[in-house]
């Protein structure tokens, strides 16, 4: 299956929309264990992304689109999710530089580069109650599914389900990174806002591919 540049732009639009819809929810989650700005920050960032992408020439390749997206988040989000998601999208852009179409192996590379970038930037691992807890299981589910010849839409659907389970798991563990780590065990019982926004983005990707 081929993912075109137009599909990528549709995914970005979907993410912008879903983050806006969940702005208050993400901020509420962050108010419980952080600094109550995750939803507001991401929404500002993705609004800026939407603006910025309209200024790119029609001939812009997918790699450049993703890198521009990442750089825009870095300069507009404000909180830790700026450099984290910014790095993720910039690294993802690097591995598909110059491409106008993506295939299964490119999608795996994108997830891998994004995950590695976030781990490196945040010096975090699975189980620290961060966005990694949804992205890592999603990456593994996607890779396993495609290796077993499952079609991309279903593989992305499985990735989104794995991300959801990973997100839900963050409720049971205590935070070891970010402001929530000041709360230690008192962070148990709350979903991690970063894991939640990461799930929403992966779900958006899956939804767009499954509906097209």
């Amino acid at each position: 299956m081929v993912i075109t540049k137009n599909d990528v732009l549709k995914v970005v639009d979907k993410i912008v929309e879903v983050i806006k819809e969940n702005k208050e929810y993400l901020t509420e989650l962050d108010a419980a264990i952080g600094d109550a700005d995750h939803g507001i920050n991401l929404d500002r960032g993705f609004d800026a992304v939407k603006q910025k992408l309209t200024t790119l020439p029609e001939t812009t390749d997918i790699g450049t689109i993703l890198k521009t997206l990442g750089m825009t988040l870095v300069s507009t989000v404000g909180g830790a999710s700026g450099p984290l998601y910014g790095t993720a999208f910039m690294r993802a852009g690097q591995v598909v530089q110059g491409k106008n179409e993506l295939y299964e192996e490119d999608i795996v590379k994108i997830f891998e580069a994004a995950l590695d970038g976030i781990k490196q930037r945040g010096k975090a691992e699975a189980g620290d109650k961060t966005m990694i807890d949804s992205i890592e299981p999603a990456y593994k589910a996607l890779k396993d599914s495609l290796e077993n010849n499952i079609a991309l839409p279903e593989a992305l659907n499985r990735a989104a389900n794995a991300a959801k389970e990973g997100m839900e798991y963050t409720k049971n563990i205590s935070a070891r990174k970010g402001r929530a780590s000041y709360l230690g065990e008192r962070s148990i019982g709350h979903l991690d806002p970063g894991a939640t926004s990461a799930y929403l983005m992966i779900k958006s990707f899956s939804d767009v591919v499954n509906l097209s």
Partner: peptide, 11 residues
């Protein structure tokens, strides 16, 4: 941030 919120901006 550029729009006056609390935050940091790598650029």
């Amino acid at each position: 941030t550029q729009d006056g919120r609390l935050g940091t901006d790598a650029t």
